[in-house]
Design a protein around this nucleic acid. Sequence first.
DNA 1: GCAATCG
DNA 2: CGATTGCAACGCTCG
DNA 3: CGAGCG
Length: 905
Amino acid sequence: MPRRATKQAAASAPAERGADALARYREKRDFAATPEPRGRGAAGRRGAPKKPAPARLRFCVQKHAARRLHYDLRLELDGVLLSWAVTRGPSLVPGEKRLAVHTEDHPLDYLTFEGLIPEGSYGGGAMIVWDEGTWEPEGDPAEGMRRGRLTFRLEGERLAGRWHLVRTGAGKERRASTKENWLLLKSDDEAARAAGDADILAEADTSVRSGRTIEDLKSEGVRRADWDEKQADPKAKPSARTTSSTKAKAARAAKEKPAADPRAALDPATVTGAKRGKLPPFVEPCLATLSEVAPTGEAWLHEIKFDGYRIQARIANGRATLLTRKGLDWTSKFEPLAHALSQIVPGSAVVDGEAVVEDTRGVSDFGALQAALKAGDTGCVVYHAFDLLHLDGVDLTGAPLAERKRLLALLLDDAPAGGAVRLSEHIPGNGEAMKRHACRIGLEGIVSKRADRPYRSGRGEDWRKTKCSARQEFVIAGYVPATNRRKAVGSLVLGVYEGTDLVHVGRVGTGFTEADAKALHDAIEAVHADAPPFAAPLPRAAAAKVRWARPALVAEIELRGWTADGLLRHASYKGLREDKDPREATREAPPADETSAAKKTRARTVAQDPYAGIRLTSPDRVLWEGQGITKQGLADYCAEIADWILPQIANRPLALIRCPAGSQKECFFAKHPWAGLDEAVLTPTIGDDAIVAIRDLRGLMSLVQFGTLEIHPWGSTLDDPERPDRLVFDLDPGEGVGFPEIVDAARTVRERLAADGLESVVKTTGGKGLHVVVPLVPKAGWDEAKAYAAGLAAAMAKDEPARFTDTLAKKARTGRIFVDYLRNGRGATAVAAYSTRARPGAPVATPLAWEELGPEIAPDHYSVTDIPIRLAHLTRDPWAGLDAVKQTLPKAKTSSKAKPRRKPG
DNA sequence: GCAATCG
DNA sequence: CGATTGCAACGCTCG
DNA sequence: CGAGCG
């Protein structure tokens, strides 16, 4: 990667706006992202201090009063307060939030960084990867922002070392408190200065990176306008700054002040492209054009694509009106939002954004939004504002996007913490990288926008959307009644417009809850028609049993692509779109992206009806009510991920959890063959027991047909059932143990295994814990394997009894993690990677790369709905090479610290 | 989901 | 003839 | 010693 441009200082003029500022921002970001070899930083090139001196750096993050997601960070370097702002950006790393520097103006001009804030922050946790580094949280996650250890590397040895991020004050009442301080404290290492030492500024008063001094920066005008107020912080250490304080104040009074105040900043003369104008009744929204590949380059910025309703908020004299894409007034449907907006915007404005409901992962959920709308309970609706078209008598549609967003950010500064109105953050630069990350963690996609362009109504090339999965609107042309219920749909018949012709594209039979199925039934019956609405006649099979409808309803459908004859592949219903015109439902291109790992997932194009030779009975039975996943939907899932799950389960004895009536009805364990099994299901005998095994998709489909919701293989294969080729350590949180501790535990297990020369991989279980899996060459028998596992668990419990226990006694487990080794006995099983779970939410046990394992990936993070999308965007299999690992259990001793406390097998 | 068994 | 009922198993703890 | 629990 090329080094950043060298003209950074020259580019720091205060009047800088729009694309220039963005470019500079990008430059900094790229610096932060550049894995630079140590020791040759810019400090050297820019003229670092003659005597590199150790720094005493204090880092204080102070929440602005009543602000959410917007902090001022203060960096106190040897008594000089430095200040810059960050806001929370989109999640790019699974389960984590990215912090991106938001304000460029700070004296240490290179201080761009990326930070990681675990879910829920703020308040949640923190935080920073600087150049490169790690954040290890400590203590009780329930405290919200946590203590932890932050390790990172900075260019410039003055800043190197070990750091602690500590929250002070506020406590649990942080929500109510406007004072919340964070201190980033450097350890007392060899670089630290003693209390009596001379002020470091006497020795070195320059930026370690640029070599510039505060005075330099002041004269260049790069200091923040609100500098001096910041310094009023009583915690700030008075020092060299006092001398420059008055001068700075005077300088600020001139022109820097407006930058901090949106209204003052709004002088149309200072905002490119802005002009005076009346508050318009409605601005035709700008629509993004679907793009297969996300654009990349400094001209673009990228936002998360939200899954909700596009809403234009028109605030006139403090009263908000909420308008849909077509200008319909939905204020009454989103009353709480309107109220919240009225609170935040005192004057007049037109804000563009998306109303969504977030699921527990912070991912927007269209279905949940619809449910909320229907129930009339829109209190949980969040408005992500992403554009500002008008503000207090100034028409901003002519201003560049970067400028509009800057003003929007200022406008929303006062949005209350945890409030319903949030700024949609953006990341500039590499859209594809952002998209891939977004897709891996279950987001819908990204929207890329030209930062330098004005707001143009209608669909244009300045805004582009790139989706993780093909997802679009279709016209509902009819339905097939449910086979097992009355007055409910079993599947929908869909069409798209090609010109004025409605064209048949097939059916969708999953994704609607039982409630949806009933509501759809009623809605479609209300527009019933006697004949198909399609322009061309249909094949007889496609028309069988269908109740037709006028082309009045629009459904949002997710699909995995199209078959050769133009029909939907693996379609899933997402909701009715009342805000969309049926005429707009045209065929969109599927996402082109297919990474090498994704090829496994591709094109299991299986004929709709007998699926891999298996006939599904009651395909419209809803197996997971919350997600509306039907038996057909489960079959689709299995077909799609077959190449991923089959290596985990094929040719192994299986235990199955079957729930023929659905995940929340009666389930039972099945281990022995039963009547009706397809011939693709093997029923060999091990010992005296007949067992079940499969070896291909057809076998898997047969299991689906019998209501198999979970698949638990042995840790050995049919070839050699008595000698395990997998060990599994199940890390089970006791009462009151949070997931971050489980993550640490998994890493501990990994380390202990590594100490014995064993490689391991990790997966979520879809439940509360994690599994650490050890591949083995089948050699040792079950007794030995179990003894080894027991030994490792016992060693962990012995060495760190506060963290671990190896007894499954409930009492011993509160506050600890049960290291369950019992899955390593003969006949014992553990849930397979990629198996669904018979639990609410349709979670899936998901293999992760060790690097992906962060404290904020919930163990039930991934579900049937998003696993196919995740897999399609992986660049490599997280468990790649598992079978290539050739390793055996060490002889008769367990991990290094362990006292051998076990009877030999 | 299916079949054996119960009432 | 419709309704009801299994459909694993093993070590370990707790009552 | 049997029921309960993963």
